[in-house]
Simulated assay, not measured.
Amino acid sequence: MPEILLTGFQPYGGRQINPSAEVVRTLEGTRIDGCTVRGLLLPVSFAAAKQPLTDAITKHRPLLVVSTGLWPGEPVIRLERVAVNRASFEMPDNDGQRPLDDAVEADGPIARAVTLPVGKIIASLRERGIPARISDTAGTFLCNTTLYRALGACERLEASARCGFVHLPYLPRQVAELLNDLSAEGRLELHQRADLASMSLDMMLEALRTILLVSLDHG
C-alpha cells in the first residue's frame, strides 16, 4: 500500500510539548487519498536525526515526504520553499551540540528546492479559512537540516516522492504557559514578547490533511 512519510520533532529548548509531535501522533496510521500515513518522530539532534530519516525514506519509498516543525511566534501555517546547506544553531540541540556555520552535507549543493506544489497548497489552505504563507527561509536549525536531508535522500534514490516542510505555530496551551511564566517573572512587559501567536491542534490537523491531499493530487 502506498505510504506518506510525515515527520515531526520531539520537544526541545525546555518546552514540554512540540506541536509537530502532536500532529504526527494524531495522523499516524490514517489514510489520505488511498495512502497510509507513516509517522516518524525525530530527535532534536543534528547527529541522531539523520539516520532514522534516511532509513525511513530508503525502506518505505513513500510517495510523499512532509516534515513538520515549530517556529515560535509564527501566527500562520508556513510552507517552506527551499533548504540551504548550512547548520548554524542559535541554541544547542538536545544533545548539547551547537554547530556554527557548518555544512549539513560536506559535498552537497548550496540549496535544494522543495518539490511540493506550494502555491496550490497555499491557495487551498486559504480557501478553507486556514491562514498560511510561503517562506523562503527554514532557518539554520534542525528544521532546515531535516528538509535538506530529506530532499537529498529522495534525490539519491531517484525517487519520485514529493518532499517539503511545514512550520507550525505554538499550540494555545503553550502560549497560556508562556503568559503565566511572563507574569510570574515580572521582567518584561507583555508587548515585549513577539512569540505569543498560536493555532488550535484541530486547525493544524486540517491544514496537514489538506497539504497531503493537494500534494498527492499535483501533476
Results as ranks from 00 to 15, higher is better:
Met204Pro: 03
Gly152Asn: 09
Gly73Ser: 13
Glu206Ala: 11
Leu79Gly: 02
Leu205Glu: 06
Gln174Thr: 06
Met1Pro: 02
Gly164Asp: 01
Leu63Glu: 11
Asn18Met: 09
Arg38Asp: 02
Val37Ile: 13
Asp33Arg: 15
Pro92Phe: 01
Leu168Arg: 06
Pro11Cys: 01
Gly129Ala: 08
Val24Cys: 05
Val214Ser: 06
Ala111His: 07
Lys59Cys: 12
Ala207Arg: 12
Glu105Lys: 14
Gly8Cys: 03
Ile211Gln: 04
Ile77Asn: 10
Pro92Ser: 01
Ala47Gln: 13
Phe165Lys: 04
Ala56Ile: 00
Val166His: 00
Arg126Gln: 11
Leu70Asn: 00
Glu90Pro: 03
Phe89Leu: 08
Leu151Ser: 07
Leu157Gly: 11
Gly39Arg: 11
Ala123Tyr: 13
Ser20Gly: 00
Pro11Gln: 01
Met203Asp: 04
Glu3Phe: 10
Met203Ser: 07
Pro62Val: 13
Asn18Thr: 06
Gly129Ser: 07
Thr137Trp: 12
Ser45Pro: 10
Leu27Val: 03
Arg31Gln: 14
Ala194Gly: 03
Val166Ser: 04
Leu42Val: 10
Thr115Arg: 03
Val23Ile: 01
Phe141Met: 08
Asp181Ala: 02
Ala87Ile: 07
Ser183His: 10
Arg98Trp: 07
Phe9Ile: 02
Arg133Thr: 14
Leu171Asp: 00
Pro117Arg: 06
Met204Gln: 07
Ala184Thr: 07
Leu116Met: 14
Gln97Val: 15
Pro62Ser: 15
Arg61Asp: 11
Gln16His: 12
Val82Leu: 09
Val104Gln: 08
Glu3Met: 14
Arg78Gln: 09
